[in-house]
Design a binder for these strands. Sequence first.
RNA 1: UGGGCCGUCGCCAAGCGGUUAAGGCACCGGGUUUUGAUCCCGGCAUUCGGAGGUUCGAAUCCUCCCGGCCCAGCCA
Length: 553
Amino acid sequence: MSRSEPVEASNFIRNIVEKDVAAGKNDGQVVTRFPPEPNGYLHIGHAKSICLNFGTAGRYDGRCNLRFDDTNPARESEEYVEAIKDDVSWLGFEWSELRHASDYFDELYEFARELIRQDKAYVDSSTAEEVREMRGSLTEPGTPSPYRNRSVEENLDLFQRMKEGEFDDGEHILRAKIDMASGNINMRDPTLYRIRKVHHVRTGDKWSIYPMYDYTHCVSDAIEGITHSLCTLEFEDHRPLYDWVLDELKTPCHPQQIEFARLSLEYTMLSKRRIIQLVEDGHVHGWDDPRMPTIIGMRRRGYTPASLRDFCERIGITKNDAWIEMAVLETCIRDQLNKEAPRRMAVLDPIKVTITDLPEDHEQIFSFANHPQDDSAGTREVPFTREVFIDRDDFAEVPPPKYQRLVPGGEVRLRGSYVIKCEEIIKDDDGQVLELRCTHDPDTLGKKPEGRKVKGVIHWVSATHGIPAEVRLYNPLFTLPDPTKADSLAEAINPESEVVLSSCVVEPALQQASAEQHFQFERIGYFVADRRDHSAEKPVFNRTVTLRDTWAK
RNA sequence: UGGGCCGUCGCCAAGCGGUUAAGGCACCGGGUUUUGAUCCCGGCAUUCGGAGGUUCGAAUCCUCCCGGCCCAGCCA
């Protein structure tokens, strides 16, 4: 292999799966699952897991299930399961089967009775407080519960009565009987079932006991024939328990749990708890606020499924606690939109330019390519008139060094049109520029000007044909690369994270824009018609990302 | 003197005893360009957290040390 050929980066999970497939383990099958708890909206960190699970299965012609880990009815809701399904589909993945942990409640209950019969589980009637005290600490072993040696018969009886609702929340729990002195606290007789007299969306009031994650997850994996159970690093020391349950239960298959590092993204918070807080405290407008790291928020911001998948591929899968720079994400969306987004002109902060040597009723229709490198994207018509708008920062009375735009007495190219020269500045009483009066060189349409160089090119919109629009600019939601380092959430919020511009003018072709359509506003950035607020009557565009800008601002 | 895990370029990340230590992002040049965009070309780790050791040969094996992350829910 020559060194110049790009090599597809592997990752340790791919290597393990590859080896297993080659060795014929699990009959060469690969079965994974994406197992969210339906207690919130998915975010970019989940996208990493989704791409890993669906991607790994897809790579080896395997299957990937979508499984809702709905074992805690107190905090889960149907709204979230629907949202999660939408997000996974939108990302471009199809689950092999849609399952719920609650589908297995009966089996789970029977397996638990089996553990009791084997004297591997017991009903503990201690209070939550007592259980915590008896668990010991990180450095001290725990002490056995006084209920640890209840007879199998008594445990079976109590467990059944727990199930039948005879007891109140907290009166008893079912615990695994493992090792109260284990260095791994998860092995100090972990809770398997707790009493929760809560209505469950799918099982209704059938159950008054609900199984815990550690017990449910491994059994669910085994029931579904999962071969590789991929989860994040914090579950590493749960793996001995995962294996213990499956070994004791002698399930027909024993999936391999493999852990990888969760995503950390600069200027972003990716913990469900904090994301909920952003919404509840009103720091953002909702779960789908374009500044949110949620899939639905990023979608509204203008990120595409392909760009998110590309991102997940680029960041890799390891066990390192890595912090990804925003630039990686931005590159992914720019890469895709550069190839696909039609170009348009939009003026965000308009100043009127009158081309004085053109007649009042001058009107010319230009045909502009929708894409400079892709003829198949076609063309659109752009009207040119005596009065146009340009962006305020494309004119400078006192230009900074290397400024290539319009200055008093200077020339600039109106993109796709003529070279104009600024002859006169009209200001209001406060010194604010109201209008620029310019002349044009009629011999510069599609031609370089004679005898001089005009370096700058600026975008514009006909003042008579342009249409008003609202444009929302988005910046990082937080001012700190790691916002959790701030004293409070409020303190970490970037006050400039959302800037709403309500008097923008965009070219007429944008009148046809439909919600969720992507564009490049030339020289500015990539924008998307807002999926909620945009309409032909009141166009609203969100800035997805700026264009790369190598000019020191 | 609890247990588990991680340290390869500014940020990611390949590498699995013999390579001039991949690639991407970022950055720095230079060229093309009616988007300061795109595109193209070039540069960017004598060194793999540190110190010892094993070996003809170590980022890869061993030992110790240093730094970082996770765990004491009847959450997931």
